[in-house]
Design a protein around this nucleic acid. Structure first.
Lengths: 252, 252
DNA sequence: GACGTCAATATGTCAGGACAAAGGGTTGAC
DNA sequence: GTCAACCCTTTGTCCTGACATATTGACGTC
C-alpha cells in the first residue's frame, strides 16, 4: 500500500492509491472536511489547481475533478483568472432522493409508522397517468401515518405498479418503503416532486390531530428507475409546524 | 469558419469549432434537443462514448463532458459495462436560483408587481441572523404584492443589507428585485431555501383575497454571493391554488 | 496624475492514451 | 440442465500536454 502524506499551507491531505475510493473523491472529502471544520475559512482562497495537483502528486484533471465535486455542492466557487475560494462553510444537505423515514433516521429521531391500509386498487386517472399505466389497472395502494415521538407528522399515500415490488409479505412499519424497494433491487434515479399546500380534509385532520381546513404542506413525488420506468407515485401531507423542506441551490 | 456536419444513426449533429460556445456544450445542447423532441426515445441507448467521439471528431474526455451535462440534468443515465440511456424525455427545469418574476416571465405570463412599502428598517433578530448583521442594524425592507393576470399570487417581503444595492431610485414594479441586483453587479451563487406552509394572517389574507387562516405556501430564502456574503433574505407567501414548487431530483 | 497596454496568473477547454472495474452474455464443465 | 468461469463491451479513473481566455496589477506613456 502506497501512502503519501502531503503538507500544505493549511490542511494536511492523505492519499491512498491502493484504496478503491477514487483519488478525486478522497481529495474532495478531505477538502470538504477542512472547510466544514473551519480549517479553511469562508472567503479564503485555496491554492491554484496546478500547485495543488503538484503537491498531491496528482494530475491537473484529477485535481479539477475533486474541486468540481465541491463546486457542485456549492462550497467552492471558481473564477477564471482569479482562483478558487470557499463560499460558505455550512451547507445543508440538499434535497435528495430519500424519504422522510431516511431523513428522520439520519436526524437521530425515532420515527414510527402506522400502516393504515395496504392492498390492490384500480388506478384512478392521475395515478395511471403518473405511473404510465392504463386507467383501472391494478396497483398497490399504501396508506401510512408517520409519527415523530408521539406526534402525528404526516399522512402518506403511495401507489406502486404491481410488477415493481410485492408489498404483501413486508413489514412496512419497520423497514420503510424506500428501503424495501432498494433491497428489492429497485434503483430510483430520478424523481419529480411538486410541493404545495392546501387545507386539511376531515379524515386527514382527524389523523393528524388538526382541525378541518388547517393548512397542510403537501408533496407529490413520482420516482423513476434507470430505464425511465415510473416505479412509485406518492401523495403526502405534512403538518407544517413539524416539517418543512430545506434545499440549497447552486447557480452554475 | 470550419463547420462539420456529422451523420449519426439517429440525429445529425453540427459542430462549430470557431464558435465561442464550448464544443462539449454544443453537443450537450443538441443531444438535449434530440431527446426533448423525441428523436431519441426514453429508454433508448445511445452510442458508446468512444464511437460518438470518433463520429464527431472529438476526444473522449470532451464527449464525456457533454454527456455529463445531461446526466447532471437527469436526462441520461450511465451504467458501466452497459452504456448510456435516456431516462426521461420531459424533465422539468429544476428549481433554480431565479425569482418568481423570472419564472412567470419565462412561462409567457405577464406578472404585475405592486410595491407596498420600501424603506430602511432596523433588523429584527432573525433578519440580522440570516444576513450576518447586528440586531438593530438598518437594512432595506421591501414588501411587494405579485399578481398574475388580475389575481393576487404572492406577498413578498425582502430584506437586503444597505451596502449591497440602493433601492431608492429603482422602479421595482418593472424590473424585479433579482434582475436589479444582477445589473448592480451582485452575483448570487448559492441560496438556502425553506419551504413550508401556514395559515394566513389577517393582513395577508386581505392582500391575497383569501380568508384569515387559509392555507398559504411559504418560502424563505437567503442568498449568498461569491464571497459567501449574505445579500438577500426573503419571506414569501403564495396562494397554494396558484403556485407550487416543482423540482427534479437526480440521484448520483 | 490619469489612462491605456502588457504581462503574469489562474481557470476553461480540448486532445490522446492507458488501465481498471462492472455488467452481461457465452461457453464450458459437471 | 445448472452453474461457474471466462470474455467482451462500456463506462470509470487517471495521466501528460497544450492552447484559450478572463482577471488583475504593474508598467509606461501622454
Amino acid at each position: 500500500m502506497s501512502r503519501y502524506i502531503v503538507r500544505m499551507p493549511g490542511p494536511r491531505f492523505t492519499l491512498d492509491r491502493s484504496s478503491p475510493v477514487p483519488l478525486y473523491f478522497q481529495v474532495a472529502e478531505q477538502f470538504e472536511h477542512a472547510i466544514l471544520s473551519g480549517e479553511i475559512a469562508p472567503g479564503e482562497r485555496i491554492d491554484n489547481e496546478i500547485a495543488l495537483a503538484k503537491d498531491l502528486g496528482l494530475s491537473r484533471p484529477t485535481m479539477r475533478q475533486a474541486i468540481q465535486v465541491l463546486v457542485d455542492k456549492g462550497m467552492l466557487v471558481r473564477k477564471r483568472g482569479v482562483g478558487t475560494q470557499v463560499v460558505h462553510g455550512k451547507i445543508r444537505r440538499s434535497v435528495e432522493l430519500t424519504s422522510l423515514f431516511d431523513d428522520l433516521s439520519a436526524a437521530g429521531q425515532k420515527p414510527r409508522t402506522e400502516v393504515l391500509a395496504v392492498g390492490k386498487v384500480a388506478a384512478e386517472e392521475d395515478v395511471a397517468h403518473e405511473l404510465q399505466l392504463g386507467i383501472g389497472d391494478d396497483v398497490w395502494s399504501l396508506e401510512r401515518l408517520r409519527f415523530v415521538g408521539k406526534q402525528p407528522l404526516a399522512v402518506m399515500h403511495n401507489f406502486i405498479p404491481l410488477d415493481v415490488v410485492d408489498l404483501d409479505a413486508v413489514d412496512l412499519e419497520k423497514t420503510g418503503l424506500y428501503a424495501h424497494m432498494r433491497t428489492s433491487g429497485i434503483l430510483m434515479r430520478v424523481a419529480r416532486q411538486r410541493i404545495g399546500a392546501r387545507g386539511a380534509g376531515a379524515d386527514e385532520a382527524a389523523l393528524l390531530g388538526e382541525k378541518k381546513g388547517a393548512p397542510l404542506l403537501t408533496m407529490q413525488r413520482t420516482a423513476y428507475d434507470n430505464a425511465g420506468r415510473a416505479v412509485e407515485y406518492g401523495r403526502h401531507a405534512y403538518r407544517p409546524d413539524l416539517y418543512a423542506f430545506e434545499l440549497t441551490l447552486v447557480d452554475r
